[in-house]
Design a protein around this nucleic acid. Structure first.
Lengths: 229, 229
DNA sequence: GTCTTCTTGGCAGTGACTGCCACTAATCTG
DNA sequence: CAGATTAGTGGCAGTCACTGCCAAGAAGAC
Protein backbone atom coordinates (compact mmCIF):
# COMPACT_ATOMS: atom_id res chain seq x y z
CA UNK A 1 0.00 0.00 0.00
CA UNK A 2 2.52 2.60 1.02
CA UNK A 3 5.67 2.14 -0.67
CA UNK A 4 7.63 0.57 -3.49
CA UNK A 5 8.83 3.61 -5.42
CA UNK A 6 6.96 6.84 -5.16
CA UNK A 7 9.35 8.25 -7.78
CA UNK A 8 8.21 11.83 -8.13
CA UNK A 9 10.33 12.15 -11.25
CA UNK A 10 13.25 13.08 -9.02
CA UNK A 11 15.87 10.35 -8.89
CA UNK A 12 16.38 9.21 -5.32
CA UNK A 13 19.83 9.57 -3.88
CA UNK A 14 21.46 8.40 -0.71
CA UNK A 15 20.57 5.48 1.52
CA UNK A 16 17.03 4.25 0.85
CA UNK A 17 14.69 4.30 3.82
CA UNK A 18 13.75 1.07 5.52
CA UNK A 19 10.84 -0.78 3.97
CA UNK A 20 7.66 -1.18 5.97
CA UNK A 21 8.06 -4.93 5.63
CA UNK A 22 11.63 -4.82 6.93
CA UNK A 23 10.59 -2.70 9.84
CA UNK A 24 7.70 -5.03 10.60
CA UNK A 25 9.97 -8.08 10.56
CA UNK A 26 12.41 -6.40 12.90
CA UNK A 27 9.65 -5.37 15.26
CA UNK A 28 8.27 -8.90 15.26
CA UNK A 29 11.66 -10.37 16.10
CA UNK A 30 12.03 -8.03 19.06
CA UNK A 31 8.45 -8.68 20.04
CA UNK A 32 9.09 -12.39 20.41
CA UNK A 33 11.92 -11.68 22.84
CA UNK A 34 9.74 -9.28 24.79
CA UNK A 35 6.91 -11.79 25.03
CA UNK A 36 9.29 -14.47 26.23
CA UNK A 37 10.68 -12.19 28.93
CA UNK A 38 7.22 -11.05 29.95
CA UNK A 39 6.12 -14.67 30.30
CA UNK A 40 9.20 -15.63 32.25
CA UNK A 41 9.33 -12.81 34.76
CA UNK A 42 6.27 -10.63 34.32
CA UNK A 43 5.86 -7.25 32.69
CA UNK A 44 6.88 -5.01 35.57
CA UNK A 45 9.94 -7.07 36.36
CA UNK A 46 11.13 -6.80 32.76
CA UNK A 47 13.00 -3.61 31.93
CA UNK A 48 13.33 -1.99 28.55
CA UNK A 49 17.05 -2.48 28.80
CA UNK A 50 16.56 -6.24 29.17
CA UNK A 51 14.36 -6.41 26.09
CA UNK A 52 16.84 -4.38 24.09
CA UNK A 53 19.76 -6.53 25.19
CA UNK A 54 17.91 -9.77 24.43
CA UNK A 55 16.99 -8.48 20.99
CA UNK A 56 20.48 -7.26 20.25
CA UNK A 57 19.68 -3.60 19.78
CA UNK A 58 20.37 -0.55 21.84
CA UNK A 59 17.77 0.74 24.23
CA UNK A 60 17.56 3.89 22.14
CA UNK A 61 16.45 2.08 19.01
CA UNK A 62 14.06 -0.01 21.02
CA UNK A 63 12.19 3.15 21.99
CA UNK A 64 12.28 4.25 18.38
CA UNK A 65 10.54 1.05 17.33
CA UNK A 66 8.08 0.88 20.23
CA UNK A 67 6.51 3.87 21.88
CA UNK A 68 6.04 2.06 25.18
CA UNK A 69 7.21 -1.08 26.92
CA UNK A 70 3.84 -2.76 26.69
CA UNK A 71 3.67 -1.97 22.98
CA UNK A 72 6.42 -4.53 22.47
CA UNK A 73 3.77 -7.24 22.34
CA UNK A 74 1.91 -5.61 19.45
CA UNK A 75 3.61 -7.45 16.59
CA UNK A 76 2.96 -10.83 18.19
CA UNK A 77 -0.67 -10.03 18.87
CA UNK A 78 -1.04 -8.69 15.36
CA UNK A 79 -0.26 -12.15 14.02
CA UNK A 80 -3.68 -13.28 15.14
CA UNK A 81 -5.54 -10.25 13.85
CA UNK A 82 -3.70 -10.17 10.54
CA UNK A 83 -4.62 -13.75 9.94
CA UNK A 84 -8.29 -12.99 10.35
CA UNK A 85 -8.00 -9.88 8.22
CA UNK A 86 -6.29 -11.86 5.48
CA UNK A 87 -9.24 -14.23 5.41
CA UNK A 88 -11.59 -11.28 5.09
CA UNK A 89 -9.61 -9.83 2.19
CA UNK A 90 -9.80 -13.07 0.28
CA UNK A 91 -13.52 -13.41 0.87
CA UNK A 92 -15.06 -14.35 -2.49
CA UNK A 93 -18.49 -13.08 -3.46
CA UNK A 94 -19.92 -16.53 -4.01
CA UNK A 95 -19.51 -17.64 -0.40
CA UNK A 96 -21.02 -16.66 2.90
CA UNK A 97 -18.46 -15.53 5.46
CA UNK A 98 -18.81 -18.54 7.68
CA UNK A 99 -18.34 -20.90 4.74
CA UNK A 100 -15.26 -19.02 3.65
CA UNK A 101 -13.92 -19.04 7.19
CA UNK A 102 -14.20 -22.78 7.53
CA UNK A 103 -12.44 -23.18 4.21
CA UNK A 104 -9.69 -20.57 4.39
CA UNK A 105 -9.05 -20.10 8.09
CA UNK A 106 -7.34 -23.46 8.28
CA UNK A 107 -3.96 -21.85 8.59
CA UNK A 108 -5.23 -20.42 11.86
CA UNK A 109 -3.55 -17.85 13.98
CA UNK A 110 -0.53 -17.32 11.80
CA UNK A 111 0.59 -20.58 10.28
CA UNK A 112 2.50 -22.01 13.23
CA UNK A 113 1.33 -23.44 16.51
CA UNK A 114 4.17 -21.65 18.25
CA UNK A 115 2.82 -18.32 17.13
CA UNK A 116 -0.67 -19.23 18.28
CA UNK A 117 0.78 -20.30 21.58
CA UNK A 118 2.56 -16.96 21.97
CA UNK A 119 -0.53 -14.97 21.07
CA UNK A 120 -2.71 -16.85 23.52
CA UNK A 121 -0.09 -16.53 26.22
CA UNK A 122 -0.13 -12.76 25.85
CA UNK A 123 -3.93 -12.69 25.82
CA UNK A 124 -3.85 -14.72 28.99
CA UNK A 125 -1.49 -12.19 30.54
CA UNK A 126 -3.85 -9.34 29.70
CA UNK A 127 -6.08 -10.57 32.48
CA UNK A 128 -3.85 -9.25 35.19
CA UNK A 129 -1.69 -6.80 33.29
CA UNK A 130 -3.90 -3.81 32.54
CA UNK A 131 -1.29 -2.30 30.26
CA UNK A 132 -1.31 -5.34 28.02
CA UNK A 133 -5.09 -5.43 28.04
CA UNK A 134 -5.16 -1.88 26.71
CA UNK A 135 -2.80 -2.83 23.89
CA UNK A 136 -4.98 -5.80 22.96
CA UNK A 137 -8.12 -3.68 22.82
CA UNK A 138 -6.50 -0.87 20.85
CA UNK A 139 -5.12 -3.34 18.33
CA UNK A 140 -8.54 -4.87 17.91
CA UNK A 141 -10.09 -1.51 17.27
CA UNK A 142 -7.39 -0.71 14.76
CA UNK A 143 -8.54 -3.73 12.75
CA UNK A 144 -12.11 -2.49 12.65
CA UNK A 145 -11.83 -0.23 9.60
CA UNK A 146 -10.39 -3.13 7.63
CA UNK A 147 -13.26 -5.38 8.65
CA UNK A 148 -15.59 -2.56 7.70
CA UNK A 149 -13.89 -2.37 4.33
CA UNK A 150 -14.61 -6.01 3.61
CA UNK A 151 -18.20 -5.69 4.76
CA UNK A 152 -18.69 -2.52 2.76
CA UNK A 153 -17.47 -4.20 -0.41
CA UNK A 154 -19.77 -7.12 0.26
CA UNK A 155 -22.84 -4.99 0.98
CA UNK A 156 -21.94 -2.50 -1.74
CA UNK A 157 -21.98 0.41 0.63
CA UNK A 158 -19.51 2.98 1.88
CA UNK A 159 -16.94 2.18 4.56
CA UNK A 160 -18.19 5.24 6.40
CA UNK A 161 -21.74 3.94 6.45
CA UNK A 162 -22.86 3.71 10.04
CA UNK A 163 -24.53 0.36 9.58
CA UNK A 164 -21.35 -1.05 8.08
CA UNK A 165 -19.28 0.27 10.96
CA UNK A 166 -21.69 -1.18 13.47
CA UNK A 167 -21.52 -4.58 11.86
CA UNK A 168 -17.74 -4.39 11.74
CA UNK A 169 -17.64 -3.55 15.43
CA UNK A 170 -19.87 -6.50 16.20
CA UNK A 171 -17.69 -8.85 14.17
CA UNK A 172 -14.68 -7.46 15.90
CA UNK A 173 -16.20 -7.90 19.34
CA UNK A 174 -17.08 -11.48 18.46
CA UNK A 175 -13.52 -12.20 17.44
CA UNK A 176 -12.22 -10.70 20.65
CA UNK A 177 -14.59 -12.54 22.99
CA UNK A 178 -13.99 -15.89 21.34
CA UNK A 179 -10.23 -15.44 21.27
CA UNK A 180 -10.26 -14.44 24.92
CA UNK A 181 -12.35 -17.44 25.77
CA UNK A 182 -9.97 -19.68 23.88
CA UNK A 183 -7.04 -18.21 25.78
CA UNK A 184 -8.68 -18.67 29.18
CA UNK A 185 -9.71 -22.21 28.35
CA UNK A 186 -6.53 -23.60 26.86
CA UNK A 187 -3.85 -24.17 29.45
CA UNK A 188 -0.45 -22.59 29.11
CA UNK A 189 1.67 -24.43 26.59
CA UNK A 190 -1.11 -26.81 25.56
CA UNK A 191 -2.34 -25.28 22.33
CA UNK A 192 -3.44 -28.00 19.97
CA UNK A 193 -4.62 -27.94 16.39
CA UNK A 194 -7.92 -29.39 17.56
CA UNK A 195 -8.50 -26.48 19.93
CA UNK A 196 -7.85 -24.05 17.12
CA UNK A 197 -10.26 -25.86 14.85
CA UNK A 198 -12.93 -25.71 17.49
CA UNK A 199 -12.23 -22.02 17.82
CA UNK A 200 -12.59 -21.53 14.08
CA UNK A 201 -15.89 -23.40 13.95
CA UNK A 202 -17.29 -21.44 16.84
CA UNK A 203 -16.21 -18.22 15.18
CA UNK A 204 -17.82 -19.24 11.91
CA UNK A 205 -21.00 -20.22 13.67
CA UNK A 206 -21.32 -16.94 15.50
CA UNK A 207 -20.45 -14.78 12.53
CA UNK A 208 -23.05 -16.59 10.49
CA UNK A 209 -25.81 -15.02 12.53
CA UNK A 210 -24.15 -11.64 12.18
CA UNK A 211 -23.46 -11.60 8.46
CA UNK A 212 -26.26 -13.75 7.18
CA UNK A 213 -29.39 -12.43 8.82
CA UNK A 214 -31.44 -12.02 5.60
CA UNK A 215 -32.39 -15.69 5.30
CA UNK A 216 -35.11 -15.33 7.86
CA UNK A 217 -33.60 -18.09 9.93
CA UNK A 218 -35.24 -17.78 13.34
CA UNK A 219 -31.93 -17.72 15.28
CA UNK A 220 -30.57 -19.89 18.08
CA UNK A 221 -33.51 -21.36 19.92
CA UNK A 222 -32.68 -20.18 23.39
CA UNK A 223 -32.57 -16.51 22.50
CA UNK A 224 -35.89 -16.40 20.75
CA UNK A 225 -37.72 -18.29 23.43
CA UNK A 226 -36.51 -16.29 26.41
CA UNK A 227 -37.02 -12.96 24.72
CA UNK A 228 -40.64 -13.64 23.96
CA UNK A 229 -41.63 -15.36 27.17
CA UNK B 1 -22.29 -4.20 46.92
CA UNK B 2 -19.16 -3.86 48.91
CA UNK B 3 -20.21 -2.87 52.07
CA UNK B 4 -21.88 -0.70 54.56
CA UNK B 5 -20.86 -2.54 57.72
CA UNK B 6 -19.19 -5.87 57.39
CA UNK B 7 -19.31 -6.16 61.18
CA UNK B 8 -17.67 -9.49 61.82
CA UNK B 9 -18.84 -9.30 65.40
CA UNK B 10 -15.70 -7.39 66.23
CA UNK B 11 -16.41 -3.77 67.11
CA UNK B 12 -14.52 -1.46 64.75
CA UNK B 13 -12.06 0.91 66.34
CA UNK B 14 -10.09 3.81 65.03
CA UNK B 15 -10.75 6.05 62.03
CA UNK B 16 -13.19 4.40 59.63
CA UNK B 17 -11.89 3.85 56.11
CA UNK B 18 -13.11 6.03 53.27
CA UNK B 19 -16.36 4.91 51.69
CA UNK B 20 -16.34 3.80 48.07
CA UNK B 21 -18.85 6.54 47.34
CA UNK B 22 -16.67 9.19 48.99
CA UNK B 23 -13.66 8.02 47.07
CA UNK B 24 -15.62 8.04 43.83
CA UNK B 25 -16.83 11.59 44.43
CA UNK B 26 -13.33 12.76 45.12
CA UNK B 27 -11.99 11.07 42.04
CA UNK B 28 -14.71 12.65 39.95
CA UNK B 29 -13.90 16.11 41.26
CA UNK B 30 -10.25 15.69 40.39
CA UNK B 31 -11.19 14.19 37.06
CA UNK B 32 -13.09 17.32 36.06
CA UNK B 33 -10.00 19.42 36.68
CA UNK B 34 -7.87 16.99 34.70
CA UNK B 35 -10.26 17.03 31.77
CA UNK B 36 -10.33 20.81 31.77
CA UNK B 37 -6.55 21.00 31.74
CA UNK B 38 -6.29 18.33 29.07
CA UNK B 39 -8.72 20.27 26.89
CA UNK B 40 -6.94 23.56 27.44
CA UNK B 41 -3.36 22.50 26.86
CA UNK B 42 -3.32 18.88 25.73
CA UNK B 43 -2.44 15.74 27.61
CA UNK B 44 1.32 15.75 27.18
CA UNK B 45 1.60 19.42 28.12
CA UNK B 46 -0.30 18.78 31.36
CA UNK B 47 1.78 17.46 34.22
CA UNK B 48 0.62 15.44 37.15
CA UNK B 49 1.73 18.25 39.41
CA UNK B 50 -0.58 20.66 37.60
CA UNK B 51 -3.57 18.37 38.02
CA UNK B 52 -2.82 17.88 41.67
CA UNK B 53 -2.43 21.60 42.28
CA UNK B 54 -5.65 22.42 40.42
CA UNK B 55 -7.52 19.81 42.42
CA UNK B 56 -6.05 20.94 45.72
CA UNK B 57 -4.34 17.73 46.66
CA UNK B 58 -0.71 16.71 46.83
CA UNK B 59 0.86 14.95 43.92
CA UNK B 60 1.36 11.94 46.15
CA UNK B 61 -2.33 11.45 46.80
CA UNK B 62 -3.09 12.05 43.16
CA UNK B 63 -1.02 8.98 42.29
CA UNK B 64 -2.78 7.10 45.04
CA UNK B 65 -6.15 7.86 43.45
CA UNK B 66 -5.08 7.35 39.83
CA UNK B 67 -2.58 4.81 38.65
CA UNK B 68 -1.63 6.85 35.61
CA UNK B 69 -2.03 10.36 34.28
CA UNK B 70 -4.41 9.32 31.53
CA UNK B 71 -6.52 7.45 34.06
CA UNK B 72 -7.57 10.81 35.46
CA UNK B 73 -10.29 10.97 32.82
CA UNK B 74 -11.87 7.70 33.93
CA UNK B 75 -14.45 9.11 36.33
CA UNK B 76 -15.72 11.59 33.75
CA UNK B 77 -15.98 8.95 31.06
CA UNK B 78 -17.67 6.63 33.49
CA UNK B 79 -20.54 9.10 33.77
CA UNK B 80 -21.65 8.09 30.32
CA UNK B 81 -21.24 4.36 30.84
CA UNK B 82 -22.85 4.39 34.27
CA UNK B 83 -25.87 6.11 32.85
CA UNK B 84 -26.35 3.38 30.29
CA UNK B 85 -25.73 0.69 32.88
CA UNK B 86 -28.31 2.27 35.17
CA UNK B 87 -30.87 2.02 32.40
CA UNK B 88 -30.01 -1.63 31.95
CA UNK B 89 -30.42 -2.33 35.64
CA UNK B 90 -33.88 -0.81 35.67
CA UNK B 91 -34.94 -2.75 32.58
CA UNK B 92 -38.38 -4.18 33.39
CA UNK B 93 -39.41 -7.57 32.06
CA UNK B 94 -42.46 -6.26 30.28
CA UNK B 95 -40.56 -4.02 27.89
CA UNK B 96 -38.14 -4.57 25.05
CA UNK B 97 -34.78 -2.92 25.56
CA UNK B 98 -35.31 -0.28 22.90
CA UNK B 99 -38.67 0.68 24.34
CA UNK B 100 -37.18 0.97 27.78
CA UNK B 101 -34.28 3.00 26.43
CA UNK B 102 -36.54 5.55 24.79
CA UNK B 103 -38.48 5.84 28.01
CA UNK B 104 -35.76 5.84 30.65
CA UNK B 105 -32.68 7.12 28.88
CA UNK B 106 -34.10 10.63 28.83
CA UNK B 107 -31.72 11.77 31.48
CA UNK B 108 -28.99 11.03 28.99
CA UNK B 109 -25.31 10.96 29.69
CA UNK B 110 -25.49 11.82 33.35
CA UNK B 111 -28.20 14.34 34.02
CA UNK B 112 -26.42 17.51 32.97
CA UNK B 113 -25.46 18.82 29.57
CA UNK B 114 -22.14 19.95 31.00
CA UNK B 115 -21.26 16.40 31.89
CA UNK B 116 -22.24 15.19 28.44
CA UNK B 117 -20.13 17.94 26.95
CA UNK B 118 -17.14 16.89 29.05
CA UNK B 119 -17.55 13.23 28.13
CA UNK B 120 -17.79 13.96 24.43
CA UNK B 121 -14.82 16.29 24.62
CA UNK B 122 -12.71 13.50 26.05
CA UNK B 123 -13.98 11.04 23.47
CA UNK B 124 -13.05 13.56 20.81
CA UNK B 125 -9.56 13.80 22.27
CA UNK B 126 -9.14 10.03 22.13
CA UNK B 127 -8.76 10.39 18.37
CA UNK B 128 -5.28 11.80 18.62
CA UNK B 129 -4.30 10.82 22.13
CA UNK B 130 -3.65 7.08 22.07
CA UNK B 131 -3.38 6.93 25.85
CA UNK B 132 -6.88 8.29 26.27
CA UNK B 133 -8.21 5.96 23.61
CA UNK B 134 -6.89 3.01 25.58
CA UNK B 135 -8.64 4.24 28.71
CA UNK B 136 -11.92 4.63 26.82
CA UNK B 137 -11.74 1.10 25.44
CA UNK B 138 -10.76 -0.47 28.74
CA UNK B 139 -13.61 1.29 30.51
CA UNK B 140 -16.02 0.05 27.90
CA UNK B 141 -14.86 -3.48 28.35
CA UNK B 142 -15.17 -3.15 32.10
CA UNK B 143 -18.87 -2.44 31.59
CA UNK B 144 -19.36 -5.59 29.60
CA UNK B 145 -19.93 -8.00 32.48
CA UNK B 146 -22.64 -5.71 33.79
CA UNK B 147 -24.36 -5.64 30.43
CA UNK B 148 -24.00 -9.39 30.35
CA UNK B 149 -25.63 -9.55 33.76
CA UNK B 150 -28.69 -7.71 32.54
CA UNK B 151 -28.93 -9.83 29.42
CA UNK B 152 -28.44 -13.01 31.43
CA UNK B 153 -31.27 -12.10 33.76
CA UNK B 154 -33.46 -11.31 30.79
CA UNK B 155 -32.66 -14.51 28.92
CA UNK B 156 -32.65 -16.57 32.09
CA UNK B 157 -29.16 -17.83 31.49
CA UNK B 158 -25.82 -17.65 33.23
CA UNK B 159 -23.59 -14.60 33.00
CA UNK B 160 -20.82 -16.91 31.94
CA UNK B 161 -22.84 -18.25 29.05
CA UNK B 162 -20.90 -17.63 25.88
CA UNK B 163 -23.91 -16.51 23.92
CA UNK B 164 -24.75 -13.98 26.61
CA UNK B 165 -21.22 -12.65 26.63
CA UNK B 166 -21.22 -12.34 22.86
CA UNK B 167 -24.43 -10.37 22.88
CA UNK B 168 -23.12 -8.16 25.66
CA UNK B 169 -20.00 -7.47 23.64
CA UNK B 170 -22.13 -6.58 20.63
CA UNK B 171 -24.28 -4.22 22.68
CA UNK B 172 -21.15 -2.69 24.11
CA UNK B 173 -19.59 -2.23 20.69
CA UNK B 174 -22.77 -0.59 19.47
CA UNK B 175 -22.72 1.84 22.35
CA UNK B 176 -19.11 2.68 21.67
CA UNK B 177 -19.47 3.21 17.94
CA UNK B 178 -22.53 5.41 18.31
CA UNK B 179 -21.01 7.46 21.11
CA UNK B 180 -17.86 7.94 19.06
CA UNK B 181 -19.91 8.99 16.08
CA UNK B 182 -21.82 11.45 18.22
CA UNK B 183 -18.58 12.90 19.51
CA UNK B 184 -17.08 13.30 16.04
CA UNK B 185 -20.28 14.84 14.71
CA UNK B 186 -21.09 17.35 17.40
CA UNK B 187 -18.75 20.31 17.41
CA UNK B 188 -16.81 21.23 20.50
CA UNK B 189 -18.99 23.04 22.99
CA UNK B 190 -22.17 22.61 20.95
CA UNK B 191 -23.85 19.68 22.67
CA UNK B 192 -27.60 20.11 22.52
CA UNK B 193 -30.44 18.12 24.02
CA UNK B 194 -31.65 17.44 20.51
CA UNK B 195 -28.37 15.82 19.55
CA UNK B 196 -28.53 13.61 22.62
CA UNK B 197 -32.10 12.61 21.80
CA UNK B 198 -31.09 11.66 18.31
CA UNK B 199 -28.27 9.65 19.80
CA UNK B 200 -30.65 7.86 22.12
CA UNK B 201 -33.06 7.02 19.31
CA UNK B 202 -30.28 5.72 17.11
CA UNK B 203 -29.03 3.59 19.99
CA UNK B 204 -32.50 2.21 20.64
CA UNK B 205 -33.00 1.47 16.97
CA UNK B 206 -29.74 -0.43 16.65
CA UNK B 207 -30.12 -2.35 19.88
CA UNK B 208 -33.56 -3.41 18.79
CA UNK B 209 -32.06 -5.56 16.09
CA UNK B 210 -29.59 -7.01 18.56
CA UNK B 211 -31.94 -7.83 21.41
CA UNK B 212 -35.11 -8.49 19.49
CA UNK B 213 -34.16 -10.67 16.56
CA UNK B 214 -36.92 -13.26 17.10
CA UNK B 215 -39.61 -11.31 15.26
CA UNK B 216 -38.30 -12.46 11.93
CA UNK B 217 -37.65 -8.92 10.80
CA UNK B 218 -35.83 -9.38 7.50
CA UNK B 219 -33.06 -6.75 7.59
CA UNK B 220 -31.49 -4.42 10.08
CA UNK B 221 -30.34 -2.05 7.36
CA UNK B 222 -33.80 -0.57 7.03
CA UNK B 223 -33.49 1.06 10.43
CA UNK B 224 -30.33 2.97 9.67
CA UNK B 225 -30.72 3.53 5.96
CA UNK B 226 -32.93 6.56 6.52
CA UNK B 227 -30.36 8.14 8.80
CA UNK B 228 -27.42 7.70 6.47
CA UNK B 229 -28.89 8.48 3.06
C1' DG C 1 -7.80 12.88 77.54
C1' DT C 2 -5.43 8.07 75.19
C1' DC C 3 -5.49 4.55 71.83
C1' DT C 4 -6.25 2.83 67.34
C1' DT C 5 -6.82 2.99 62.65
C1' DC C 6 -6.78 5.48 58.35
C1' DT C 7 -5.17 9.04 55.32
C1' DT C 8 -2.09 12.64 53.84
C1' DG C 9 2.04 14.91 52.09
C1' DG C 10 6.92 15.27 51.59
C1' DC C 11 11.22 13.36 50.05
C1' DA C 12 14.24 10.36 47.72
C1' DG C 13 14.61 7.03 44.27
C1' DT C 14 13.69 4.30 39.95
C1' DG C 15 12.89 3.64 35.29
C1' DA C 16 10.48 4.66 31.01
C1' DC C 17 11.08 7.58 27.53
C1' DT C 18 12.98 12.02 24.66
C1' DG C 19 16.23 15.42 22.29
C1' DC C 20 20.48 15.93 20.66
C1' DC C 21 24.59 14.62 18.20
C1' DA C 22 28.31 12.25 16.40
C1' DC C 23 29.02 8.00 13.89
C1' DT C 24 28.13 4.38 10.75
C1' DA C 25 25.53 2.24 6.72
C1' DA C 26 23.75 2.21 2.17
C1' DT C 27 23.02 4.05 -2.14
C1' DC C 28 24.07 7.26 -6.35
C1' DT C 29 27.35 10.13 -9.09
C1' DG C 30 31.47 11.01 -11.33
C1' DC D 1 37.71 4.59 -6.37
C1' DA D 2 36.40 9.21 -3.58
C1' DG D 3 32.72 12.25 -2.43
C1' DA D 4 28.03 13.51 -1.76
C1' DT D 5 23.64 12.44 0.21
C1' DT D 6 20.27 10.45 2.89
C1' DA D 7 18.88 6.97 6.58
C1' DG D 8 19.48 4.57 10.73
C1' DT D 9 22.21 3.61 15.31
C1' DG D 10 23.87 4.20 19.81
C1' DG D 11 25.24 6.91 23.70
C1' DC D 12 24.49 10.50 26.96
C1' DA D 13 21.97 13.75 29.61
C1' DG D 14 17.65 15.15 31.00
C1' DT D 15 12.58 15.01 32.21
C1' DC D 16 8.79 13.21 34.45
C1' DA D 17 5.46 9.72 35.71
C1' DC D 18 5.18 6.98 39.43
C1' DT D 19 6.69 4.18 44.04
C1' DG D 20 8.35 3.15 48.92
C1' DC D 21 8.95 4.97 53.12
C1' DC D 22 7.87 7.57 57.07
C1' DA D 23 6.36 11.15 60.11
C1' DA D 24 2.33 13.96 60.93
C1' DG D 25 -2.60 14.88 61.01
C1' DA D 26 -7.69 13.29 61.17
C1' DA D 27 -11.49 10.75 62.70
C1' DG D 28 -13.41 7.88 65.31
C1' DA D 29 -13.93 4.40 69.92
C1' DC D 30 -13.11 4.35 74.81
Amino acid sequence: MTGEQADDGVARRGRPPETDAQRARRRLAISRHAVRLFREQGVVQTSGEQIARAAGVSERTLWRLFRAKEACVEPVLTISLDDFVAVLRSWPARLELDEHLRAAYGVELGASLDDAEAVLAVVRMTRHEPGLRAVWLVLHERAEPIIAGALAARLDRSVDDLDVRLRAAAVNATLRVLTDDLAWTVADGAVTAAALEHHRDRLAGTLRTLTRLPDGVPQPSSTTRAATS
